[in-house]
Design a protein around this nucleic acid. Structure first.
Lengths: 185, 185
DNA sequence: GTCTATAGGACGATAGAC
DNA sequence: GTCTATCGTCCTATAGAC
């Protein structure tokens, strides 16, 4: 299981970098191929279509997010487990940080990625994450606070992407916890 | 000064709606023209180019943001005035709310709008806003907290755009203030 | 696995009539 | 102010040779 065609991985790496930096729609297959010193049809040997290529880049992050919430939700019929907000927000920050490049790409380009039905999936795990934070049937004001906390942390993972994780995580999580508890307490 | 050609205003309204909903790059001039029952060349009578049309939609929001910070910065050579964070964040929320549709469009599509040199301008007024909040030469941790506060509020203005302002503003500003003071205090 | 060549369509923009 | 017609460019995708 060493190399599932090495070229495929190189295509994914270059495509991800260009998609993130200049936008998905603004990056043509020709540009990706040129950067790799190959031609467009070579791409089509490794990916069925442009959409298939985009999907292959986005999928790992979406999977990570969905497994994150699924692994923390109560088993069928069990009581909702209480989650320490600081721990949950900290773990979520780690995940957002790990996928920060693709995350910003997806958030930015929801319209472009509409054919992948990504909006629905993102909305779903985000909603489930808020329920983990606040418990069932949260008050509107609490949901707004949770949006500040989660959205603010995601912004940090993107805006301070060039700094080391340890420097950003502490203050970002602390601010998010404060935002959440100020309104829910 | 009644109607500076009524068609121009109708074009702007339709274009803004489509740009926000499906993305700038995903909306062609043909689509805008069709929606208005006119043809593409008619657009070119009112706007010099596609880029000119986009710019005309984005400019009012950018102006609003720049005037917001400029009006609160200390006069040349004067002491930096102290700003009450709650008041400043509240005023900023009002502004973000007023321009929420264009704001989300610009944030999302920074790559597409790169030719307008928008990234530079946004980065600048956002930085100046953080200095107003924190005073000169703020600590890195405080800047991160400010990013959570400002970014979180912007997210709220977008995500809860369908609710009345009064319902969203209170909790959002309260959460933002808490995020800011938890780290700076 | 990668190439050359090309089909086929959409788009931005302009010319010129009315 | 708005139209018809069209130019040139770029794109995704495929056919077929090596």
């Amino acid at each position: 299981m060493a190399k599932p065609t090495d070229t495929r991985a190189r295509i994914l790496a270059v495509a991800r970098e260009l998609f993130v930096r200049q936008g998905v729609r603004e990056t043509s297959l020709r540009e990706i191929a040129d950067r790799l010193g190959i031609t467009k049809p070579a791409l089509y040997y490794h990916f069925a279509s442009r959409e298939d290529l985009v999907r292959s880049i986005v999928e790992p992050m979406m999977d990570g997010m969905e497994r994150f919430v699924a692994g923390r939700e109560p088993r069928d019929g069990a009581e909702p487990a209480a989650h320490d907000p600081r721990a949950l927000l900290g773990d979520y920050f780690d995940l957002a940080w790990e996928h920060r490049d693709v995350l910003v790409m997806v958030i930015r380009e929801l319209p472009v990625l509409a054919p992948l039905e990504l909006g629905e999936r993102m909305f779903s795990w985000r909603r489930r994450l808020i329920l983990l934070l606040l418990g069932p049937d949260p008050a509107p004001a609490a949901q707004i606070a949770a949006t500040v906390a989660l959205g603010g942390m995601s912004d940090c993972a993107v805006e301070y992407a060039h700094l080391p994780l340890e420097q950003v995580k502490g203050p970002a999580v602390e601010a998010a916890v404060a935002a959440l508890t100020a309104v829910t307490a």
